[in-house]
Write a protein that binds this DNA or RNA. Structure first.
Lengths: 193, 193
DNA sequence: CGCATGTGAGACATCATTGTCTCATCCGCT
DNA sequence: AGCGGATGAGACAATGATGTCTCACATGCG
């Protein structure tokens, strides 16, 4: 099988592109139809159904790809090296390309009503929290804001950033600066800056 | 008309309660059925349909009430009085009761596909931005983070907070502290604290 | 008590979405 | 040119949501 690695128009690439546009669309309009998702991706509904059995399969694939890419971004950010502040900076930079995915996943993850919290998500939560805890123990971060809250807050900021970029209210090149500076330093002017 | 102000079980109150539970539910599960919305509010689907012609009417009412309550919260916060930092603090405190609404509105507001951005929303945006600009001009806030971004970021933080409280990851009493401290001071320890 | 109003439960037709199918077409490859 | 694989367009039934209806019941009021 797979004797020909040449693809007709696009193939493995297409799958990712489809998921990317689906995430973009579903982030804004969670009730979007399969037909709308297909059109947003520039393919027909038939092809969409060939790649993903149904809406559930699409969302699951969306989660898997998003979580995987997010984990890869965290790997690249080397969260356990150097100063925690710098690690946060690297983290946001690496996360930017997947920020759309992250925004979607954050809003959609509790969609799993009674089921257990997707464990892949818990792992990512933990990696964020570990970083913040490390910064606290190193005396670099304040200790009156819990790692769990900082994790949620960073999700929120990244989502807001992705959102703003998508709407043209924020230049993509300012994405990481705006997020990191606000998260680390806050809005208040301080003498040490 | 309206000769009897006595209500059977609840009436005007009920409407608000319905909208409140609808916001809570739809924030978590945007694809929720009218039937689910009705059950979440503790009423029958028939009654829900009597109060709101359909899903669109429900969402529109949701927006109107949410925006109105949000504006009222901003009024109470007296954003133009005293130090900008204190105004931010009052703002978050006043917004907390409507944070669920706000989280819903933020995610759902672009649901209006081609139509114009709901103008009521633009007004609220502006009030936030004015506050941040005032803080900057007073030398209280740093000037390298644009008021527009700070507005979006605060939405994100409030949403994350509402979200965390709803899931029990954050105590309701810590809501405003966690948000305000992070927004104003950031996570980095600084000498002036 | 009798009436009016609002409600819950359910039946029902209608509509939209979904999932599956077929068929014509296009493109890369041999 | 001929072939294989993938696609787009559309038909189709099945499913689910929606909107409207009726009826029985409860509650407040005169």
């Amino acid at each position: 099988m797979m004797s020909h690695m040449r693809y007709c128009c696009l193939m493995a690439v297409d799958r990712e592109h489809v998921l990317r546009s689906a995430a973009d669309l579903l982030t804004r309009k969670a009730t979007a139809t399969m037909d709308e998702v297909a059109k947003a991706a520039g393919i027909s509904r038939a092809t969409l159904h060939r790649q993903f059995a149904g809406r559930d399969a699409l969302v699951k694939a969306l989660e898997e790809l998003g979580l995987r890419q997010l984990e890869e971004a965290l790997d690249r950010a080397r969260l356990d090296e150097g100063a925690a502040s710098d690690a946060v900076r690297r983290l946001v930079v690496e996360v930017q390309p997947v920020a759309g995915f992250l925004a979607f996943l954050v809003t959609e993850n509790q969609l799993f009503e009674g089921e257990q919290q997707h464990q892949g998500w818990a792992r990512i939560d933990e990696r964020f929290a570990v970083l913040f805890r490390r910064g606290q123990e190193a005396g670099e971060f304040r200790i009156d804001l819990s790692p769990a809250w900082l994790t949620e807050a960073l999700y929120g900021l990244i989502g807001a950033g992705a959102w703003s970029v998508q709407d043209g209210r924020l230049a993509a090149k300012d994405f990481s600066y705006m997020i990191v500076e606000l998260l680390l330093g806050g809005v208040r002017r301080s003498v040490e800056r």
